[in-house]
């Protein structure tokens, strides 16, 4: 069994102190250790974006990040995005534009879109498509997700 390490960080605004194996990923820590399961495992190698979280405001594939690297940082998961009413506009847009089907990619899409809108509050369609390029969805064909993020950013194109 691998060495345990104690780390402390902020998760969705609240302080967390946790002892984790040194080899654990941030994704496993969230899901298996802290039981914060909104963030999904889709591929485990940074290709699908289902595990996207924000670390100090940057969008990160949590499956590629060691849990120990979270020490001293501020993590935001889909639960944290949803807890802030500021983001209701984005979530409502995803619902109303039909950007959700099976929903398994949705947490990653929500977090990535939140990051995108923080960076570009009024993105054009091309920026949204490129911004979501690293998030795979097998159900929707992406159009309605892109529509939603454009809509949430106040742009129809």
């Amino acid at each position: 069994m691998s060495l345990a390490v104690e780390i402390a960080f902020k998760l969705n605004g609240s302080p967390v102190r946790v002892s984790i194996p040194a080899t654990m990923t941030a994704l496993s820590m969230l899901r298996d250790q802290l039981n914060v399961t909104g963030t999904k495992y889709g591929c485990g190698e940074g290709e699908c974006g289902a595990c996207t979280i924000l670390v100090d405001g940057l969008s990160v594939n949590s499956c590629l990040m060691f849990a120990v690297e979270c020490d001293g940082r501020e993590l935001t998961t889909v639960e944290g995005v949803a807890a802030n009413p500021v983001n209701d506009r984005l979530r409502d847009a995803l619902v109303e534009h039909g950007g959700v089907q099976c929903g398994f990619c949705t947490p990653g899409m929500v977090v990535q879109s939140k990051w995108l809108l923080d960076k570009h509050p009024h993105p054009d369609r091309h920026q949204v498509e490129r911004g979501l390029e690293g998030n795979l969805c097998r159900c929707t064909g992406y159009k309605k997700i892109v529509d939603a993020v454009c809509g949430a950013g106040g742009s129809n194109e």
């Binding site: 495992y41 949803a82 039909g98 959700v100």
Partner: peptide, 22 residues
């Protein structure tokens, strides 16, 4: 155009799939 009934909780990360169950 009627939005999916389960979409709001999916956008909140609240939906628990079999992968999330313990």
């Amino acid at each position: 155009r009627i939005p999916k009934m389960d979409a709001p909780e999916k956008t909140a990360g609240k939906t628990r799939y079999v992968q999330d169950m313990k």
